[in-house]
Write a protein that binds this DNA or RNA. Sequence first.
DNA 1: TATGAATGAGCGTTCATTCAT
DNA 2: GATGAATGAACGCTCATTCAT
Lengths: 185, 185, 185, 185
Amino acid sequence: MPIQKITKAEILTKTLELFQKQGYYQTSMEQIAEACQLKKGSFYYYFKDGKEEIMHEVLQMSLDFFREKVFAIATQADLNPPEKLEKILKKHIRLLIKYKSGCLFGKTSLEIAHQSPSFKPVLQTFFEEWENSLSQIYEAKYQPSYAKQLAKQTMIEMQGASILMQVFDNEEIMNECCARLLDKF
Amino acid sequence: MPIQKITKAEILTKTLELFQKQGYYQTSMEQIAEACQLKKGSFYYYFKDGKEEIMHEVLQMSLDFFREKVFAIATQADLNPPEKLEKILKKHIRLLIKYKSGCLFGKTSLEIAHQSPSFKPVLQTFFEEWENSLSQIYEAKYQPSYAKQLAKQTMIEMQGASILMQVFDNEEIMNECCARLLDKF
Amino acid sequence: MPIQKITKAEILTKTLELFQKQGYYQTSMEQIAEACQLKKGSFYYYFKDGKEEIMHEVLQMSLDFFREKVFAIATQADLNPPEKLEKILKKHIRLLIKYKSGCLFGKTSLEIAHQSPSFKPVLQTFFEEWENSLSQIYEAKYQPSYAKQLAKQTMIEMQGASILMQVFDNEEIMNECCARLLDKF
Amino acid sequence: MPIQKITKAEILTKTLELFQKQGYYQTSMEQIAEACQLKKGSFYYYFKDGKEEIMHEVLQMSLDFFREKVFAIATQADLNPPEKLEKILKKHIRLLIKYKSGCLFGKTSLEIAHQSPSFKPVLQTFFEEWENSLSQIYEAKYQPSYAKQLAKQTMIEMQGASILMQVFDNEEIMNECCARLLDKF
DNA sequence: TATGAATGAGCGTTCATTCAT
DNA sequence: GATGAATGAACGCTCATTCAT
């Protein structure tokens, strides 16, 4: 069939979901293909360098999404700091709960910790930018150095809660975590 | 002449290290065999059901270790609650930093979240017993329900810090997390 | 608007170069396409039967070229036999040294020896006509049967030298071979 | 079946034949496996590094064979130089005619000329040692430098004749070439 | 005229597992 | 007890080819 069955963006979205659920290594090209209703060979038309390139683009797309839709909340002029924090956390949590799969960046970090480090830069960038956006909000109330500390701690709690959510198949853990973080502020 | 080259316990210890570093799926039987100075065929003598059985026994052994050496600290008669918390956290952290590989139970939880072979029960048990031991300590100062909440939060922070430690290759994140948890108490 | 981007002849010339360097099987349609600044699908407009048809036309074009520009030297009225031999050999060698790739016909003969698609006839024709043209020159000095023998030997030496040139990355082997052949005459 | 079905040496012999007939790239692991009555995955037990390692061992085995059984003739004390030349050429030709496939070293040289050069050293060694052994024989009658030249020319003729033998499916070309080389001495 | 999109078959490789010895 | 030998299924990937547009 010579008609385009699926756009590159759609492929990336479907693949993101799979990587988020199953992890990078446990997701086969065949599974990705099936999800896109393509044959696995067809991917190399869109992604000349194969699976690793898909992952790179998935991570980049996801990073871009977070930048625009989540981290950007920190600089939104029409919100006061507590509103910003609430919005930024709730938005983030909604994404972590979706597919009940937690954070692609955190998950991938563990998967590749002791392997091919080609993804590491994007992963680190994600966490750095996340930290910066949170820190910016906390700085409305606290000194920069303490704000940074709070930002890091917030990331830690979100990542940790995401793990426990998956261990116990219980989304409430995420929500409680969020509530606690908002309370503290 | 049947001289046993290696005991089951030794195999499990070597394998634990590999699983902790590389994850369950990314560790091959070949690698395990090499680490144990055995040939991969030989494992099916020790573990009739193969890799999955090895993982089960690794998780069980590790759980037993935590019960005896870590969680047991919560009921140690010769320590007061703050001492207990310090000891239990520091002991735990030392294990997470070892091999710079984080928590086998947390890591495995993410790996199998949507694959879930039969590991989930052991993983849940680990977190439940961990929670109980922490809760017991916090109960010295707080109401049971709040203590439980604090225990859960403590686990969340340790797991989250363990992820960030690996993202940034920085053990200090773990230590700071511990310090914060002790401070709060 | 159907402006032809490239003529069939230009495609064949570019492809000849690739086949000569890399061999038929080791040259992909993608590489050919790239060299012609076309997309690989486009070849099936020019060559309905695909790669094999391209090769056929490449071989035919190359054979025609040799007929007109090389073998024809044997019947050139304005040269005496030694001049003919010198011209025919030097012209030929220049083509073998180009791209440091040796003889397309010899190379292809080895590639398809036991695979033999339909190329064999053109290959044989090339060698037969080459032999005839050389033989004709030698007949000026020797008996037809001995001339034929010399012609065959000349081809053998040129082909063999072409192999050694490639083994040792040394064009001098070709030139020395040529000198020896001229000397002998 | 846990009983050894085939020895490494037998694998190499069968594979040599395939590579010699079809070339390295045109011989698939599946074909090698079939020839050995193994499944293709099984090779990685004998050859951890796969196809390239098989080829290396095939080339090495073949080189060793030539050293012991062919090139060694040049230093055989019980033969005079003409006898040596006759024996060394006839022995060599018998190997080239076998499988009607010509010379593995020459063929491979062309195949890899413009690709991965990992085999090049063995190929060059083959030709160097071949040249040395021939040169040694010619030195009985000629000056070293001329002997070397004759040796090179002998290799050239054998390689070239091997190509023409395959083009015309005619073993006689090889034999005539040999006769001529002996005559000249 | 030329291409964008897709495919099917095959490739070399990995790996958990089996089992006679 | 432990292994040497083998396997089958799956994996990521390449490539010649097709064909609606």
